[in-house]
């Protein structure tokens, strides 16, 4: 198992937002996390690169193992951990710098200074993110000059540049138009062969198209976790059935 969550409970101050969640995720698979707003799926996603550490008063119980190592162990260097786990956010958030610098940033903060290596990685990452052909002649231009969909693929390239093994995506296509959205989905499909991907989405079709497994969250609980096809065609719980057919949420 690439990722394991064992009896995870999570609190913001007094509020418990995740209730005893256990889940195992295989290497090189895509797992979709679905559920209504406020169900805790984004919070759950952010446990794996410890982004929730940045919130004051947040507290975790239980264990999260990546490659068998408890990432909340005291000996874990958070920055090292985050380097091995890429994250893509809901709204494209490129740095106010050039396209090149955006992709190179992760390498630079991790101590890589060899120009040739950086240049090579920038090209490779942009190719992996299916953006290279569109930007290869304007690498020195500001990232803000790109369209929303291109910006999001740039953010994916930026995450890939530090060679993570896991990719966390928090509603990566929700701020994009349908065509850009499809491009991101195709990209996810291609990236699956080399990365373990977790994706939070509100879009049911997107979840069924892109993922191997789907987890349905409701009110901080993991209601159902199964193969995507099974979950969407033959859910075992009534709540899941109601949600995926659009009767609530």
């Amino acid at each position: 198992m690439k990722i394991e969550a064992k009896n995870v409970k999570f609190f913001y101050g007094q509020d418990q937002v995740l209730k005893d969640i256990s889940m195992s995720i295989k290497k090189n698979t895509v797992t979709a996390l679905i559920g209504p707003s406020g169900c805790g799926k984004s919070t759950f996603l952010r446990l794996f690169n410890r982004m929730n550490d940045l919130i004051e008063g947040a507290r975790l119980e239980g264990e999260i193992l990546i490659d068998g190592v408890d990432i909340y162990n005291k000996n874990i260097n958070v920055n090292e951990l985050r380097k091995t786990i890429g994250m893509v956010f809901q709204k494209p958030n490129p740095f106010p710098k050039t396209i090149y610098e955006n992709v190179a940033y992760g390498l630079k903060v991790n101590g890589v200074s060899d120009k040739n290596i950086i240049e090579e990685s920038v090209e490779q990452s942009l190719k992996q993110a299916a953006l290279w052909e569109e930007v290869k002649d304007k690498l020195k231009k500001s990232a803000f000059a790109l369209s929303g969909g291109q910006q999001q693929r740039l953010c994916i390239a930026r995450a890939l540049a530090v060679k993570p093994s896991i990719l966390l995506m928090d509603e990566p296509a929700s701020a994009l138009d349908p065509i850009s959205s499809i491009k991101i989905e195709e990209l996810i499909y291609q990236l699956k062969s080399s990365y373990t991907i977790l994706i939070v989405t509100h879009n049911m079709q997107q979840a069924s198209r892109t993922s191997d497994k789907t987890a349905f969250f409701y009110m901080g609980e993991l209601v159902e976790f199964d193969d995507t096809r099974t979950l969407f065609t033959n859910p075992k719980k009534e709540r899941t059935q109601n949600y995926i057919t659009g009767r609530f949420g």
Binding site: L54, R82, N93, V109, A159, V162
Partner: peptide, 15 residues
């Protein structure tokens, strides 16, 4: 400076 920029930087392993 929006929080999302800081988040993006932290997520890449920046201190």
């Amino acid at each position: 400076v929006p929080y999302t920029i800081r988040e993006a930087s932290y997520a890449l392993g920046a201190t």
